[in-house]
Design a protein around this nucleic acid. Structure first.
Lengths: 231, 231
DNA sequence: ATGGTCTACTGGCCGGACCAGTGGACCAAC
DNA sequence: GTTGGTCCACTGGTCCGGCCAGTAGACCAT
């Protein structure tokens, strides 16, 4: 038997949901002044405390703008409804496929735009990484910085942000579990080799090579870290 | 003269900041039970109401887990400190460059993976769009759905999410101002032509063509919507 | 071992009180 | 007419004390 769990939704949640519905449906237009807290409490049949808690929830999520002595105004620019889908769980294959395509292109672009100082920074990064084989956390962090640096080389902040997004998707518990196998020093060493190959391609300003080496690197990572489901 | 604005921080904000600091500094470990609301109020020298408001703020942001009858627990997984970097303003050139590269690749992949029903859906979408030349809002929305559909064709949720992110970056007030020139029916008609060309390439399962047509489309959009800074 | 009861917690909610910020109405002085 | 006071009717901000409901553990009778 599988009884449904009874839910008791806290009052402030109910109230804020009601208000959000009203705002979204246009009963309260952006910029409009809401009824006072006392009125809302009376109309909703709850105490003023609960209304205040609901309003604070709305304020935090950007639905309203509370101004002391004035009242509560509906926000001019309504917040994203997306409700923090933040780290939606996503399959290893999907993630790695996307990384291969996107980071491959980024590497190609980086080969053409990287400055000498960035290339030098990357060389230092790789050396530090090689010195840290064994320390999983430090290694992991350097790996992240390596990929972030490549996107920075494009000079395009959008690529930086997307690389960051891709990396974050790898932080979910589901993944970190897989990465226990990360421990193997052989794996770490192989990744360093990949990184060096990428650096070489960047230095040679060879976009095509950078792209293919990067894609190879990501396929390696997939098969070695998350099992051999790579194509 | 440029006097600084005096700030009066609301109590619940101060309290939650204090608690966040304590949690982050490890005085309250993840999973640990916090002092009761009454104790906190006494220790902080404020009323229980204010403490409750602060706790609700923390709960919304995922710092704590409030359980009726038990107490308030520090969350196991502390929330991202990233504090809504959400829609960082970004230059038109950067955004369009990124879109060209990424959506180009996506289109190429979509050409290989799109199902017949998705292609049919896209055809319908284009027709609807052509019927709406003139209605800016509806047109804009259909445009978004068009690009979202292409990423859905890849069958990879990561691409869908990234396309969504790219689109959101276009919503900032800075951009929507530019898009006033959107009004021109000639521009709208030209975009429909581009969309049709993309659909043709997808139907032909020609990844290379899909990619180049998509990139051309995005360059067109840049020059026509945001001025002719395209290369 | 089981199941009831009591009790001492916890958060959830209430309503009334007072304080502080705000802006408009009003008025006197210049 | 403009300026600057005073007053007042609002608003949200904060506090208090009370009561309810959910919880867990101690205790006890079965």
């Amino acid at each position: 038997m599988d009884l449904p769990t009874v839910k008791v939704e806290r009052l402030y949640r109910q109230i804020s949901n009601i208000l959000i519905t009203y705002i979204r449906d246009g009963h309260f237009a952006p910029g409009q002044l809401l009824p006072g807290e006392r009125d809302l409490a009376k109309q909703l049949g709850v105490s003023r405390s609960s209304v205040r808690e609901a309003l604070i929830a709305l304020e935090i999520n950007g639905w309203v703008d509370i101004r002391t002595g004035h009242g509560v105004y509906v926000a001019q620019k309504l917040p994203d409804e997306t409700e923090v889908p933040a780290n939606e769980e996503v399959g290893v294959e999907s993630l790695m496929e996307a990384r291969g395509v996107i980071e491959g292109e980024i590497a190609a672009m980086a080969a053409k735009k990287a400055t000498e100082s960035q290339l030098a920074e990357m060389a230092g990064l790789i050396e530090a990484m090689e010195a840290e084989i064994g320390d999983r956390a430090a290694f992991h962090d350097h790996d992240r910085r390596f990929h972030a640096l490549i996107s920075a080389m494009t000079g395009n902040p959008v690529f930086v942000e997307i690389t960051d997004l891709l990396w974050k998707k790898r932080q979910s518990p589901h993944y970190t579990e897989f990465e226990k196998q990360y421990s193997g020093e052989a794996v770490a060493r192989s990744m360093c080799t990949d990184h060096r190959a990428i650096l070489d391609a960047l230095r040679a300003r060879d976009g095509k090579a950078a792209k293919s080496v990067m894609q190879k690197h990501i396929r390696n990572a997939q098969s070695k870290l998350f099992g051999a489901r790579a194509r």
